[in-house]
Computed example of a mutant assay.
Amino acid sequence: MTNEKIMIVEDEKIVALDIKDSLEHFGYSVPCMADSGEDAIKFIDQYRPDLILMDIVLKGKIDGIEAAKEIRDNYNIPVIYLTAYSDEKTLQRAKLTEPFGHILKPFDERELRTNIEIALYKQEKEKEKQFDREKCVNSLLDNIGDAVISTDINGNIKYINPLAEALTGYTKKEALGCRITNVFKIVCEEERVVEDPIRKVLREGAFFGLEDNTTLISKNNTRIPLDIIGSPVTNKKNEIIGAVIIFYDITDRKEIERSFHSYDISYC
Score class of each variant (00 low, 15 high):
residue 98 E to K: 14
residue 116 I to F: 04
residue 142 D to V: 00
residue 137 V to D: 07
residue 126 E to I: 03
residue 123 Q to S: 08
residue 104 L to I: 03
residue 78 P to F: 00
residue 121 Y to D: 09
residue 85 Y to F: 10
residue 146 D to G: 07
residue 145 G to Y: 02
residue 104 L to M: 05
residue 141 L to N: 02
residue 126 E to V: 03
residue 134 E to F: 04
residue 89 K to M: 11
residue 133 R to W: 07
residue 125 K to F: 10
residue 84 A to L: 07
residue 110 R to S: 12
residue 75 Y to H: 04
residue 115 N to G: 04
residue 121 Y to M: 12
residue 92 Q to L: 13
residue 114 T to E: 13
residue 128 E to A: 14
residue 148 V to G: 06
residue 81 Y to K: 00
residue 96 L to T: 13
residue 83 T to Y: 04
residue 93 R to M: 05
residue 140 L to E: 00
residue 123 Q to L: 03
residue 107 F to N: 05
residue 82 L to W: 11
residue 97 T to R: 07
residue 111 E to M: 08
residue 91 L to M: 14
residue 112 L to I: 04
residue 131 F to D: 14
residue 107 F to Q: 08
residue 137 V to L: 15
residue 144 I to N: 02
residue 126 E to M: 12
residue 82 L to I: 08
residue 136 C to M: 15
residue 82 L to S: 00
residue 77 I to M: 01
residue 125 K to N: 11
residue 129 K to N: 08
residue 109 E to T: 13
residue 122 K to G: 02
residue 103 I to V: 11
residue 92 Q to W: 10
residue 123 Q to P: 02
residue 97 T to Q: 06
residue 84 A to F: 09
residue 127 K to W: 01
residue 106 P to T: 04
residue 99 P to D: 11
residue 139 S to K: 10
residue 133 R to F: 11
residue 94 A to C: 05
residue 124 E to Y: 11
residue 98 E to I: 11
residue 86 S to L: 01
residue 115 N to C: 12
residue 112 L to D: 08
residue 126 E to K: 13
residue 103 I to D: 10
residue 97 T to G: 07
residue 122 K to N: 09
residue 132 D to F: 13
residue 148 V to C: 06
residue 123 Q to K: 14
residue 146 D to K: 15
residue 130 Q to Y: 11
residue 84 A to V: 09
residue 145 G to K: 05
residue 121 Y to W: 12
residue 113 R to F: 10
residue 138 N to H: 09
residue 115 N to R: 15
residue 90 T to S: 08
residue 88 E to Q: 11
residue 122 K to V: 08
residue 86 S to K: 02
residue 141 L to R: 08
residue 121 Y to K: 15
residue 116 I to T: 03
residue 144 I to R: 08
residue 106 P to N: 07
residue 83 T to N: 00
residue 102 H to M: 15
residue 91 L to Q: 03
residue 143 N to R: 11
residue 139 S to A: 14
residue 104 L to E: 09
residue 104 L to G: 03
residue 90 T to D: 06
residue 92 Q to A: 10
residue 136 C to K: 15
residue 115 N to T: 06
residue 127 K to I: 03
residue 104 L to H: 03
residue 125 K to P: 09
residue 85 Y to P: 04
residue 81 Y to L: 05
residue 93 R to I: 01
